[in-house]
Structures are given as structure tokens and as C-alpha cells.
Amino acid sequence: MEAKFLAWDWEIGEFKKIPSNNIVEAIYIAWNYEFDVYEADTQKLIFSGQLDNEENSALLQKYGIRMIDHNGYRKLQDIESGEIYEAPWH
């Protein structure tokens, strides 16, 4: 499987392949390690836990998801259906 997403590992200063091509899973995997997420083919930033909800939502719009506050946590939400995606740690 060719990775669609990369995580930036701040400690070693390099990209790591994310073992999921599902955008929501990829973000939650990287976020758990406090890594930013990039498109593999362009190395363009598409998510950062250091950005606010509006900034992340603008980056994620092309994927049909946004970042929201829900029940005291930041979560991803499908723009079209309104489905809220739970992180594995919640």
C-alpha cells in the first residue's frame, strides 16, 4: 500500500509514513504522537494539532471534514453528514 499521508516527527526531523490511507484515521494516529499530517505526494500540510479549529478546518475542507469542539474535546466532523468521528482515546 502506497501511503497517502505522512507525519512530521519533530524529534528526528523527518517524515514518517502513516499506516492508514483514511484521512480521519491518519489524523488521529499522527495527533496521538503530536505529529503534523502532510499529503505524501505534495508534502503539503493538511493538519496540525498546534493550529486552531478554523485553521485546520480550512486545510481539511478539500477532504470534506472539519475540526470542531464537542463535549470538551477537539474532534473531526464530516461536513456533509455532520458525523462526528471519535478518537480512539475518547
Score class of each variant (00 low, 15 high):
residue 1 M to K: 10
residue 2 E to W: 06
residue 3 A to R: 04
residue 6 L to W: 05
residue 6 L to Y: 11
residue 6 L to S: 09
residue 6 L to N: 02
residue 8 W to F: 12
residue 11 E to I: 13
residue 12 I to K: 14
residue 13 G to A: 04
residue 14 E to C: 12
residue 17 K to W: 04
residue 18 I to F: 05
residue 19 P to H: 07
residue 20 S to D: 09
residue 23 I to C: 05
residue 25 E to A: 05
residue 26 A to K: 00
residue 29 I to G: 02
residue 29 I to Y: 15
residue 29 I to D: 10
residue 30 A to P: 01
residue 34 E to L: 13
residue 34 E to S: 15
residue 38 Y to I: 03
residue 41 D to W: 08
residue 43 Q to W: 01
residue 44 K to C: 09
residue 45 L to H: 06
residue 46 I to T: 03
residue 46 I to D: 01
residue 47 F to K: 03
residue 49 G to K: 06
residue 50 Q to L: 15
residue 50 Q to S: 15
residue 51 L to S: 06
residue 56 N to M: 03
residue 57 S to H: 08
residue 61 Q to H: 14
residue 62 K to L: 04
residue 63 Y to M: 00
residue 63 Y to R: 03
residue 65 I to A: 02
residue 66 R to N: 09
residue 66 R to P: 00
residue 67 M to E: 15
residue 67 M to G: 04
residue 67 M to R: 13
residue 72 G to N: 00
residue 73 Y to C: 09
residue 73 Y to E: 15
residue 77 Q to L: 02
residue 78 D to Q: 07
residue 78 D to W: 07
residue 79 I to K: 01
residue 79 I to F: 05
residue 79 I to H: 03
residue 80 E to P: 07
residue 81 S to Q: 06
residue 82 G to K: 02
residue 82 G to W: 03
residue 84 I to W: 10
residue 85 Y to S: 05
residue 85 Y to M: 00
residue 86 E to S: 14
residue 86 E to I: 08
residue 87 A to G: 14
residue 88 P to R: 00
residue 88 P to F: 06
residue 89 W to H: 10
